[in-house]
Design a binder for these strands. Structure first.
Length: 464
DNA sequence: CTCCGTACTCGCCCTTACCC
DNA sequence: GGGTAAGGGCGAGTACGGAG
């Protein structure tokens, strides 16, 4: 019995639980070879197909460990369709094991090849190729404009969980890359400069310390290796290793009782210690809090600039905390922000009116005070947290999911988006969350079409 | 060593173009 | 219009490499 795809959807297929002895995508029995879409057989379909239980009718099979996050696009779509078609109700967001017949295996393999070829064609068509000669052969190399990396930060014995990043560059340069890494490290372990750590890279699965990445030349090598890793479908890891801070640790051993009372407040303002402090005699206990008399000229200047900045940006609206206000939007300024800003002013990179070019000064993190959130701010301590303000702001400005989908229907075609309304409501998904949903999450709510997902993401960004 | 993922080969079948 | 060769798609099976 053979049916094409259109015919299958016109006929009522009874729902079933998935059995490991059948092909997930076509319901072929992997023992007797029967198509079980409409009939059943007497084979033990709960037995996992293996080399030692093959039959004359079905000699081949493929075991598949499905993981939505690491699967090719066609496979995701294929699995999702089959899940709906046969009513397995398998959660495709989580990884699970299933079996495929050789025909479906080949089909998926071919479609993925097609997809990859198309992607390559698109890339070749849109990006200017650089021709480089290596050992006498001409090789086509696409310039890297996007870096997908895992960044691992090692701070002494402590190793932070890897951070996944996806950075885009118009014209990738070592200085831009270095700045981005510096910003990321600062965001995770506090204000840090690139002179305070070593940078290295390696393939995710490789062992060893990796290759040092510390200048333009090594960065060019890194870009070549990056393309090689990506073409081999391997992930690239950047390792940030903080330099030895033994001297600082020694100082901490001498901390006095006062430290405990003030540490939580003051560590955020901690400024790199001058050499004079590091050479302190052993045994003479000292406080981690820098004393003005022990600061060098540079640090005194930076401290002075910080004080002036703090005076300048006191926010009356936010309980006398500090905000940078632009176009009516308030960006909360922390001690780290002030420290960075002061250092940039000291280096003549910016002034008192213009915040540094750093992610933490992005106005994307700012909030627009509303009658709702501004009136409550002074009374509620927690509400001064910017993230809460952002959420409140989203809620006040974004349309309801229903309105949003109806608008998209009007724009792109009737019932193209509102057909998913029920699922969005069931999952309590708001408009301003749509652009952050992963492919797996979209799959889970039944949206497998790439175009639909991308439209939802693009349109929802307007309300962020 | 086993399992899994991917690429590849081989044979069959269907479609299309060409020739008589 | 009928016969035939060429080409492409598909299904079945195998080989190989990487990871655990």
């Amino acid at each position: 019995m053979s049916l094409n795809e259109n015919e299958v959807f016109e006929v009522q297929i009874y729902t079933r639980k998935y059995q490991i002895g059948t092909c997930f995508t076509c319901q072929k029995c992997l023992y007797c070879g029967k198509d079980l879409s409409f009939v059943n057989c007497h084979c033990n379909k709960n037995e996992k197909p293996a080399k030692n239980n093959r039959t004359a009718k079905v000699r081949g099979y493929r075991g598949l460990c499905y993981d939505a996050n690491n699967s090719q696009p066609f496979l995701k779509e294929f699995m999702n369709k089959s899940n709906l078609k046969f009513g397995y109700e398998v959660n495709l967001e989580t990884s699970f094991y299933c079996s495929l017949c050789t025909a479906c295996n080949s089909k998926i393999s071919r479609e993925n090849n097609k997809f990859e070829k198309e992607i390559k064609k698109e890339k070749n068509g849109t990006k200017s190729d650089i021709f480089s000669e290596e050992s006498g052969t001409l090789i086509v190399v696409n310039p890297v404009t996007e870096l997908q990396l895992r960044i691992s930060i090692k701070n002494g014995k402590e190793v932070l969980p890897s951070i996944l990043v996806n950075w885009s560059f118009d014209d990738i340069k070592y200085i831009d890359f270095s700045t981005k890494v510096e910003q990321l490290v600062s965001e995770h372990i506090g204000l840090t400069f690139n002179s305070e750590y070593f940078l290295a890279y390696k393939g995710n699965s490789e062992v060893g310390a990796g290759t040092l990445l510390d200048n333009e030349i090594t960065f060019e090598e890194f870009l070549k290796d990056f393309q090689r890793y990506i073409s081999n479908k391997k992930k690239v890891m950047i390792i940030v290793t903080m330099k030895d801070k033994k001297k600082n640790k020694k100082k901490r051993e001498y901390k006095d009782d006062n430290l405990e009372n003030t540490a939580s407040e003051e560590t955020e303002e901690e400024i790199p210690k001058p050499k004079s402090v590091k050479t302190k005699k052993k045994g003479s206990a000292t406080n981690r809090i820098p004393k003005e008399s022990k600061l060098d000229e540079k640090e005194k200047m930076i401290g002075e600039i910080m004080m002036q900045l703090k005076d300048k940006y006191v926010c009356n609206l936010h309980n006398h905390k500090h905000c940078f206000v632009k176009d009516g939007r308030h960006l909360f300024l922390s001690n780290v922000s002030f420290s960075m800003w002061a250092q940039d002013i000291f280096k003549n990179n910016t002034d008192f009116e213009t915040p540094p070019n750093h992610a933490i000064f992005s106005m994307l993190h700012s909030v627009k005070p509303t009658s709702c959130n501004s009136s409550n701010l002074n009374s509620n301590e927690n509400s001064s947290l910017p993230i809460l303000n952002i959420i409140q702001n989203y809620i006040s400005e974004a349309p309801s999911i229903n309105e949003f989908l109806e608008e998209l229907d009007r724009k792109y075609g009737a019932n193209k988006f509102t057909c998913y309304l029920q699922k969005f409501e069931e999952e309590e998904i708001r408009v301003n969350q749509l652009f952050r949903l992963s492919d797996a999450e979209y799959n889970f709510i039944g949206i497998s079409k790439i175009g639909i997902r991308q439209t939802l993401r693009d349109e929802s960004k307007k309300f962020v």
